[in-house]
Design a protein around this nucleic acid. Sequence first.
DNA 1: ATTAATTTTCATTATTTACTGAAAGTTCAA
DNA 2: TTGAACTTTCAGTAAATAATGAAAATTAAT
Lengths: 167, 167
Amino acid sequence: MKLEEAKQQFINSWGAFGTQWGINRTMAQIHALLLISTAPITQDDIMEQLTISRGNVNMNIRDLIGWGLVERVIVSGERKEYFTADKNIWKVATQIIKERKKRELDPMLKLLGQLENIDDKKEEGAKEFLTVVSDIKKLGGQADSLLDIMIKAEENKFISGVLKIFK
Amino acid sequence: MKLEEAKQQFINSWGAFGTQWGINRTMAQIHALLLISTAPITQDDIMEQLTISRGNVNMNIRDLIGWGLVERVIVSGERKEYFTADKNIWKVATQIIKERKKRELDPMLKLLGQLENIDDKKEEGAKEFLTVVSDIKKLGGQADSLLDIMIKAEENKFISGVLKIFK
DNA sequence: ATTAATTTTCATTATTTACTGAAAGTTCAA
DNA sequence: TTGAACTTTCAGTAAATAATGAAAATTAAT
């Protein structure tokens, strides 16, 4: 396979995987493009490479910045803004975990806590309902702790540490 | 909060969380409904509870069965099919992990392996590209091992084991 | 074998989500 | 302080995804 072909394949497939995870296809593609770009690139570069509109690039870049995955770069002597993505994959992963935890896991745990406060806990079926809710909450809480550890740990320590114990 | 209200809230919110994770809203709602149903229920029950069409229920139920999250139940003396979901949340989680691993992680690792086979590895920019690809592949492989351990482990062993080491 | 009950399929329709492009806004050099 | 370069917004449109409902297929009781 040619390098250019491989790069294109990477971008496209990354977009496809993204959609499966509830991430906008274009956003995933832009991130992929930035991951394999050796130097910072502009909105126009992205428009051209992915053949998408200026507005689309702009909105998704801002989203990516909001996720902490992309940064603006100022190139001295240049008027245009440049963008770059962290190439350290462990950092990318922990950043995504951190954000999803905040955006999704935390709200979910909050909701489950509220659902535990039902008026009449003796009512028909209340026990079963509360069991399911508290079990999910418990598992969610444990996932939360585990992910916190991952976020704080260094890659090597975390993975090798876990694998060691269970082997 | 009233029990019925809490149940409704649970179903709706579960649907909303589902969409964030790339899961069809209705499918998540049906799963939620089955999780908090004390006895097996029929397609008609689901249609009524969620006010959705027969075709919709049927397709999503089949999907859920495909994910290994829902089972058909035969009630003796009844013509209709009944459905039920495993209430053991750890089992639900490992089942979902198992399926997503198979459907998403495995294909991704396969793709990345292919992308490493580019013709001219001396070409301008090839080194950087290959580094990103192999880093992702490495992280993916480690995630794969970790998830395998989770799938095999008992809930208590896994969580407490991991937390213990890193505390 | 017939037929009534039930499940499944899938073309059509509706809803949701994403994208475009032009206009408005901002920045900065002269 | 003007205007060219560049960025941002967002109403309108397109594309993707999900839901409907009626017809076809299947099942099982008589």
